[in-house]
């Protein structure tokens, strides 16, 4: 067989899937539509008005009004609202991820399609359905709806984050349970352990480390989302961002956005350290 034939044979044997091809065509069409046949255009960035706005923003609006120097200004801003914004945001995300973690733990026992090769819970399909519905609605929309019910306390933000993440952690936890080693579970079952005994004495201790990895991964995103939920009126970082913008205090707004970035960065570090400790 010549080299060309060998190459031809390899080419013939390549993996092919109709769905993948269809998706590629669809992606190309969608991209062309979004960029070439719609109102989205980069030219819009360079109209006279936009350039003027842009220049004014960065040379005037967003420049701190600091007669006593930047350090003094920063100190004032931080004690006026900066620390409050940071702590409130962090606290909201910690409470939320705690509730999500605990509920996700319960959901994951139910969501598993198999537990060590044993018969899964009768409610497995229902629980999986619940997980899908819980995570399908974005946190921001949930918080918006809950705000009307609970008023401007921290609860709408906490519950919105908790509901969304419980759905995600329930599904991921279910996968953890499915992937547990089956021997210990089967021998406990053979000894006559009840379902709840299996859950507390085998599934939980074997699966919790892996579950906690997911828990901290979700904590990161939780903090990130918590920074913006305040924009709805709950007192977190986003609330101060909206306030500053409403008063045209763009220097404060910019500072708050930077504080948000710092907070997310810190959460990343905390979560990284915790995950290293677990491995």
């Amino acid at each position: 067989m010549s080299r060309e034939q060998a190459v031809e044979q390899l080419w013939q044997r390549r993996q092919r899937s109709k769905l993948v091809r269809f998706t590629i065509v669809l992606a190309v069409i969608a991209t062309a539509w979004a960029w070439m046949f719609s109102d989205i255009t980069f030219a819009d960035l360079f109209t006279e008005q936009r350039v003027k706005n842009w220049n004014r923003f960065w040379t005037k609006d967003a420049v701190p009004d600091a007669p006593n120097g930047f350090g003094a200004w920063l100190g004032e801003q931080m004690s006026a609202y900066g620390y409050k914004a940071l702590f409130a945001t962090l606290a909201i995300s910690v409470v939320a991820i705690f509730i999500a973690g605990a509920s996700g733990l319960l959901l994951s026992f139910g969501a598993a399609r198999t537990i060590g090769g044993l018969q899964p819970s009768r409610f497995s399909p229902v629980t999986r359905m619940i997980c899908i519905v819980l995570r399908a609605i974005p946190e921001y929309v949930l918080a918006f709806l809950l705000l009307a019910i609970f008023g401007a306390t921290a609860w709408p933000a906490i519950l919105a984050l908790a509901i969304h993440n419980a759905g995600i952690l329930g599904r991921l936890g279910g996968e953890v349970v499915e992937n547990l080693p089956s021997r210990p579970l089967q021998s406990l079952d053979a000894l006559g352990a009840s379902r709840s005994k299996l859950a507390t004495n085998a599934v939980f201790p074997m699966g919790i480390a892996r579950y906690l990895l997911y828990f901290f991964y979700r904590f990161e995103t939780c903090v990130r989302e918590a920074t913006i939920l305040g924009m709805l009126g709950v007192v977190s970082l986003g609330y101060y961002v909206v306030e500053a913008r409403a008063h045209n205090d763009y220097d404060q707004m910019l500072l708050l956005i930077c504080l948000g970035a710092v907070l997310v960065f810190v959460a990343d570090v905390i979560s990284d350290v915790a995950r290293k400790l677990l491995q």
Partner: peptide, 8 residues
């Protein structure tokens, strides 16, 4: 804030 409302 810096540019105004635009799809881009």
């Amino acid at each position: 804030s810096a540019m105004g409302l635009s799809p881009i």
